[in-house]
């Protein structure tokens, strides 16, 4: 299976996210958006809004200062 055919699932660990929005800004596929609900730290964490569009480029994990994003393949 080539990378193209793989299915990627992005998960935001809500209570690790400080809602900085860098992943939302830099995701080329607009997979992520800000949650309307506050997390335990009082931030509006990122959440997948178009999960099916994820191509597994990993940019969100690279720009996240808080290791709050997990990307799964398969």
């Amino acid at each position: 299976m080539s990378k193209k055919d793989k299915v990627f699932t992005v998960k935001v660990r809500r209570d690790f996210c400080k809602g900085c929005g860098l992943c939302i800004e830099f995701c080329q596929k607009e997979v992520l958006g800000a949650s309307a609900k506050l997390n335990s730290m009082g931030y509006n964490p990122a959440e997948p809004v178009k999960p099916e569009a994820c191509v597994g480029c990993m940019i969100c994990t690279q720009v996240c200062p808080d290791l709050a994003i997990e990307v799964y393949s398969g």
Binding site: D15, T61, D66, V71
Partner: peptide, 25 residues
């Protein structure tokens, strides 16, 4: 999981850094 938690980063810590701070990166 594609991006495994780095071995030399303490498991599941939340830093004191402000949102968007470059230190975390």
């Amino acid at each position: 999981l594609v991006n495994k938690w780095p071995k030399y980063y303490k498991q599941d810590v939340v830093t004191h850094y402000c949102p968007g701070c470059g230190h975390g990166i």
